[in-house]
Structure formats: C-alpha cells, structure tokens
Nucleic acid binder design. Structure first.
Lengths: 234, 234
DNA sequence: CTGAAAAATATTGCCAACGACCATGCCAGT
DNA sequence: ACTGGCATGGTCGTTGGCAATATTTTTCAG
C-alpha cells in the first residue's frame, strides 16, 4: 500500500470509491452527506467535496437539492461506454506494448494470480479489485496521462456495475475472463502493438455482446425492472 | 441564452470557465479562492467547489496546500491530447452525421458566421467562443453522453490554450481554420459517416502538425521558456 | 557579506453551526 | 379521489474560526 493520503478529501474519496467498487454501496443507493460524515468522523463539507470528486470519476451522480446516488448503469449506458472504451483501450494497450517495463508485466501476472485465487475462493470483492488493478496498470504503463484519465473515467462505472451482475452468475464467465486476461498478457509480451490492439478490441466486443445478453435475460426475468432507490448494505 | 443556473457552484464555475477560455485568466496564473470569493460576492467554499468542477473539466490543476492554477499546456501535452482527440472526435462526428437534426446544422452555420465576423473584426474572444460552440454542438448531436464528456474534457484545455498562441499570429491561420470548419459542415451535410470521419481526422492531424511547428518556432524565439507563474490580466 | 536557520505571512484545508431553499410525504379540506 | 397547505429531511450556501502547510522575510552565525 504505497497510497499517500495527500488530503483528507482525497482520503474519503478513495474510501468511498472502494466501497462502491466492492458493492458495499449498491448501484442506485443514496449517499447522504451527513450520515457519511458522522460515520467517518469528518465534516460535511469534506464529504461533499469527496462526492464531487467521485462524480468526476463517474462513480456517482449528483442531483441538485436532492442528493448524490451511486451510478446505476442502464443497458444503453453499457453500449455507450463500450463504444468509447473500444476506441481508447486498444490504443492504450498498443502503446503500453512498446513502452511497458518488464517489471510491470510481472505485476500484471501477479494481478492475474490474484484474480485466479479470488475466483477459486469465490471472493468477488478481491476479484474486482484485482481486475481493476490489472487494467489500471496497463492504463498507467502508456505515458499519455490524458488517455489514462479518459479510460479511468469511462471504465470505472463498469467496475462498479459488473460485480452485482456476476454475483448471481455461474463461475463459467469468470473462467472466460481469466482466459481473456491471460491472452492480454501474452499479447503484451510480444510487444507487437497491432496484435495487442486486435486482441483487446476483440475482447471488448465479446464482453459487450455478453453483457447485453446478460441484461436482456435479466430484464426478461423480472418484467418491470424495479431497480430504484436500492438501499446500501453495510 | 437558455442557460439555467441550477446551483451557485455551477454558476461560478461557468463564469470562471469563460474567463479562462477567453484568456482573462492566463494559462499558469494562480486562482486564489478568497480573492475570487470576495470579487464575485460568494463564499470561499462555493469557489472551492467551482474550482474543483473546473479541475474535472481539465481547465485548472489543484496542487494540495499550494493553490489552483489555470492549465498551462506544454508541447508534449498537445501531442497527448491530440492523440486522444484523434480517436474520439472522428467517431463522434461520424455518429453526428447520421443523427444530427437539420436545425442543428443551421446552428453550426450560425457559429461559422460568428467565427467569420470575429476574424474580420479581430475579436479573438468572440472567435474562441464561436469555435467552442461549434464543436460543442457536434459533440452534443451524437447521443453518447460519455463520448461527449470525454471530448469536452480532452478538448477544453486546447481552447484555453489556443487563444494566447493565436494572439501573436497572423490571421492566415484563422482563414485556414475557417476553411476547415466549412469542410466539416459540408461533410456533415452529406450524412456520410465515413466521409465525415476522414475529414475530421485529417483536420486534426493537420492542426497537430501546425501546432507543433508553432511551438517549436516559439521555443526557438525565447530560448529558456520562462512560462511560469504568469499573472492574470483582468 | 553570505548562507542557513527561524520567524512571519499567506493560503489552503478542515471544521462547526446556522439559515435558506428544495423536494418529498402526510394530511386535512373540498 | 384529488388538491392545496404543512411539516420534515436533506442539501446548498454562508459565516467564522482554527490547523496545516508553503512561501517569503528576517535574523543570526560564520
């Protein structure tokens, strides 16, 4: 944990971020400033700014005079996000292929091990964390800070979303995801930008189709989707 | 002016945004919270949150315990930004080509007229505003809100940057820019996504080369670039 | 006179408390 | 049943103050 807690606002933001990504704050749930402030032992203003920071990351949405809510992606949102991700992540991975240090590749392998272990022990929190670290490493390995930021903003909502879906799903999809990540590592090892780019794009397209199928079947399950004002489960 | 000032924070943010985009706050200049607060007749916290919002848009950078400064792009930043823009804007324009309403096209023409008039009267503020509106309209015309947000965040720093550069430059480049924008409109009128995409990409690549040449010659001019802590000119 | 330590200053970061505003839900009245 | 007040809970904005940190100035030793 080399995280440096520069400022308290940032500290609170990181804490809430992990809470959201791990599903402790469910998508759509309300995040009352005062409650969080007293629970975390900080002031209201501090929480407000932290929430605003999370809004900048796309993890929450603020409705004026109403409150802030954890992002809750709809089916169309998934399409929109994948459309952007499909353009940016292949580029990022291609550049990472030529600029990545060997040490970073080892870290990627460590993440993959972590994901494997998480799947074996059905520890979904751990899985999402490792998955997120995996992609973050790639995003950081290419030197373009703007590209890194765009990827973070567009993909973070996905990581906040996928968990809950996968909770109710067999582990077969996890195995598929593990295979895909192995493929990425192997592609990066070749240091061939075009190859990496192709692999990533195919993977993204595949996940989109898969996610859409998930959504459709989920929508069929409970006809009138009542995904509103879900309460958080601490 | 159909702008609805939902909240005061937003209002202040929009005001500061235009100040930055029009060059009233020069790149690199410091933005002290208290000074702005008393100048605008609002509280410190309000300004803080507005500045944080601008940080989310990439217009300012906050350095902990030091202050917030207007973004000041370096040469490498330009390359980084154009690299992302090159991927996203052709996509956005291609989608806008098929989804744009005729009314929107008329608005684009209005913007172009505005730009023309601005160049004729050497009103650079007006030019940048019209240019920004032009691109904003296109970004909004395609329906993907995530793509719109990415483009805004990655391109706004450019608009905050270009003005000062062009201040010291002959109007020939303005003529070129006008021609390019005309070309965009004509391409959009064809409603041919591939064509639009190609035109935009070529335009972006051209601007990148041009901007890089600008920067190099500028760097040659004043050997040791002293672009630090520039004071704002109210 | 020079360089480094120390004090003064300025600005941000954080907090507590308050009034105002807005949205929501309840309830009486028609 | 529908509508209009009315109370409530939450956010928004403000004031005022204090702590933490960066910068600048001053002071002092060599």
């Amino acid at each position: 944990m080399k995280e440096k807690s520069k400022t308290k606002r940032h500290e609170v933001a990181r804490l809430l971020e992990t809470r959201i990504l791990t599903g402790q704050f469910a998508p759509g749930s309300k995040l009352p400033e005062m409650k969080l402030a007293s629970a975390l032992g900080v002031s209201q203003a501090c929480v407000r700014e932290a929430l605003q920071e999370l809004e900048g990351l796309g993890l929450v949405v603020k409705q004026p005079n109403r409150g802030t809510f954890v992002i809750n992606l709809k089916g169309e949102d998934l399409v929109y996000i994948y459309q952007v991700r499909r353009e940016l992540e292949p580029l990022a991975c291609a550049m990472a292929a030529t600029q990545m240090r060997p040490q970073r590749l080892d870290e990627l392998c460590t993440c993959l091990e972590d994901m494997r272990a998480a799947v074996a022990s059905s520890d979904y929190e751990r899985y999402v964390n490792a998955d997120y670290r995996f992609h973050s490493l790639i995003w950081k390995s290419q030197r373009n800070p703007y590209l890194e930021r765009m990827l973070k903003e567009v993909c973070l909502p996905l990581f906040a979303h996928e968990l809950l879906r996968r909770y109710s799903r067999a582990s077969t999809s996890f195995d598929l995801a593990l295979k895909q990540h192995e493929r990425i590592i192997r592609a990066l090892q070749t240091r061939n930008p075009e190859l990496v780019s192709k692999v990533i794009r195919r993977m993204i397209d595949r996940f989109l189709r898969q996610d859409q199928a998930e959504l459709i079947s989920a929508a069929m399950g409970k006809e009138t989707a009542p995904t509103e004002s879900v309460e958080s489960r601490s």
